[in-house]
Nucleic acid binder design. Structure first.
Lengths: 148, 148
DNA sequence: TAAAGTTGGTATTTATAAATATCAATATTT
DNA sequence: AAATATTGATATTTATAAATACCAACTTTA
């Protein structure tokens, strides 16, 4: 039996992640400050990156370097994701949640105490985990609309 | 009775439009080449801009200058618009339309002979006219999903 | 406990997107 | 028919986003 690890297991410290991605440590922290990624944080506040994080960041890099989409562009595209459908938010829930109302950034950047997600760990949420890949958001919208 | 004109009436030649927007004539042509706008063209291929065009371009300017979203970012955001829902495309129609399948640019940039829109004038289409405003695309997705 | 790594912060550099300038050819206006 | 405006195309400039370099304080690991 091989020592397999889940794609979601946070294993790489920041320098290793940076090497795998061929970018600087600081760029990684910048992406986090911009709410593009949510790496795991140890109690010491040191970061750990999973294989999914690496894949996600490669996708972000491709959007920036190949597709020439700015970071603020990516944030706005993330904001198009209908998170409330994944979370099954009630009309009441939605009406006061800026992730539903605004289009300025991803839902996991919303810091509200009065939202359904207030006490949840966004890193383990399907909205964060499954819709960071380029094109997956339109995929969701497509599937959700055409299956109804 | 005042000499009223429809918001969609193409009335301003390019230099007037540029002055109203406080930008150069060339920037306007650049936005068009990038498929952000579809100004009316006279038989001589001279452009005319409507008040809706002016409003739309002001919105694009705000996205670029205030929200710091790159042109390619705006194109990708436009591509999130579920045009097939507005046009009531059949499953057959959708399956071969890249506006449905891709997420690289607005549907009106798709040049396909085998699409539902092949012989239509996109400038007069609701998808172009009503979803160029910032935020209107998320609005559409929101309303479409929550009304079902 | 010493060496190596990470933290958040600012200041600087670099790469490039966005806008401008210039051009001869064509169209419009009066 | 002359003056003015628009066309597309390329070459250049400018503004700034993205990335890098540096820092002292703190954490990990061996």
């Amino acid at each position: 039996m091989l020592n397999e690890v889940s794609k979601e297991e946070p294993i790489y410290p920041i320098r290793t992640a940076a090497k795998l991605l061929n970018i600087s440590v600081h760029t990684l922290r910048m992406y986090e400050k911009e709410d593009l990624i949510l790496p795991y944080k140890k109690s010491s506040s040191h970061r750990l990156y999973s294989q999914n994080d690496i894949d996600r960041i490669n996708c972000i890099r491709s959007a920036i370097n190949d597709s020439k989409i700015s970071i603020n562009g990516i944030k706005t595209i993330y904001s198009m994701m209908p998170c409330w459908e994944v979370m099954n938010c009630s009309k009441e829930d939605r009406s006061k949640c800026s992730a539903f109302l605004r289009h300025s950034g991803p839902c996991w950047a919303v810091k509200g105490d009065d939202t359904v997600c207030a006490n949840k760990d966004c890193r383990n949420c399907s909205v964060y985990q499954d819709y960071g890949e380029c094109g997956s958001i339109k995929n969701f919208i497509r599937n959700k609309l055409t299956s109804l």
